[in-house]
């Protein structure tokens, strides 16, 4: 009888770890229930994939379409074609020289796909827009959504410590953030033809770490601002752009700067470098990785500490 009562007591025991794990699961599910947001994110991914695929099909990841003299003259492709028509008129020595030049030029154009894809898509669209947007939408919604719908109170009245609640929701947000950023990047690279797999192999660590740091930062915004998504877009599309392109050390406060440094180092052998290395003054890939890693941990720790103290009004 006593044994049975003891077993009953044990069964009735509550566990904080179990509660925490359930909160992670619940939060993950609730992110999935933000259907409109998920659909918009997926639609954006689908659209970007179609754009990349169409460019791949059209063979546009090449400098062949670039204008030869500045932006006024013929394209490289046209120039090569035109030049080859006059080759037979050249003397034999000139023919040999010209053939060597054309071969080299063609080889360069063929190899240029990686740089064109990286600069024209990865940097300009993925890193500057898609990655921050996907990160900010899921990260700000994780806590901001609960605040906006005034349902945060139900979590805060449970017997879980506040830092644990903060951490649980962050952990629940990560799969979404990483799936879209790293998974989305993989998908985009997979339809990009030859340069795609190279870009993915070289850049996935930068994408991963940038996602984590952006996620931690925007999640912090979500916990502390009533309109976190607005603050996050100000940061992503205004401050990051301004800070990331400044000379001097101001750019070192930009998350994107470190991610780009990792990418520049990873693709150095492919000729990728900042447009103005002296002004850009990149740090080494290792340093950038450590900065991103420590920033993520620091942002999380700060968030957990502050979340313990913050009060949420009913109107929140």
């Amino acid at each position: 009888m006593t044994e049975s009562a003891g077993a009953m007591d044990k069964r009735r025991e509550r566990s904080s770890l179990r509660a925490w794990l359930f909160l992670v699961w619940l939060s993950w599910q609730r992110q999935a229930r933000a259907r409109q947001m998920v659909w918009i994110a997926l639609a954006l991914l689908a659209f970007a994939t179609v754009v990349v695929a169409l460019n791949t099909a059209g063979g546009r990841w090449t400098m062949a379409y670039w204008k030869f003299f500045g932006r006024q003259g013929p394209t490289h492709q046209e120039w090569l074609a035109q030049s080859q028509t006059v080759t037979p008129l050249l003397p034999p020595a000139g023919k040999a020289l010209a053939s060597a030049y054309y071969a080299a030029h063609s080889a360069i154009l063929k190899e240029s796909d990686f740089l064109v894809f990286t600069r024209g898509f990865v940097f300009l669209l993925f890193f500057s827009f898609l990655l921050p947007l996907w990160s900010l939408s899921f990260a700000t919604e994780a806590m901001g959504g609960e605040r906006e719908s005034q349902s945060l109170i139900w979590l805060l009245t449970r017997p879980l410590s506040r830092p644990a609640i903060y951490l649980a929701k962050f952990v629940a947000m990560l799969p979404w953030c990483l799936a879209l950023n790293v998974g989305g990047f993989a998908l985009l690279c997979s339809v990009a033809g030859r340069p795609g797999p190279i870009a993915f192999r070289l850049f996935w660590p930068a994408v991963l770490w940038a996602s984590l740091t952006f996620g931690a930062l925007f999640y912090l915004f979500g916990a502390f601002f009533r309109r976190p998504a607005i603050v996050a877009i100000v940061y992503s599309f205004f401050l990051e752009v301004i800070m990331g392109n400044m000379p001097g050390d101001l750019k070192r406060f930009s998350v994107g700067f470190y991610a780009r440094c990792m990418m520049f180092e990873a693709a150095e052998q492919h000729g990728l470098q900042p447009e103005n290395p002296v002004i850009y003054d990149p740090v080494s890939g290792g340093t950038a990785l450590w900065v991103l890693l420590l920033s993520t941990v620091l942002l999380l720790a700060v968030g957990m500490f502050l979340f313990r103290r913050i009060e949420f009004e009913v109107s929140d």
Partner: peptide
Amino acid sequence: RTVPLIMTWTTLFFFFRRLAEALVDRL
């Protein structure tokens, strides 16, 4: 909702701007 609204709005005015830049100036 705020976040989907921002996603749509920024897509219209930031994403398409960058896409146009990529298509016309880079490609």
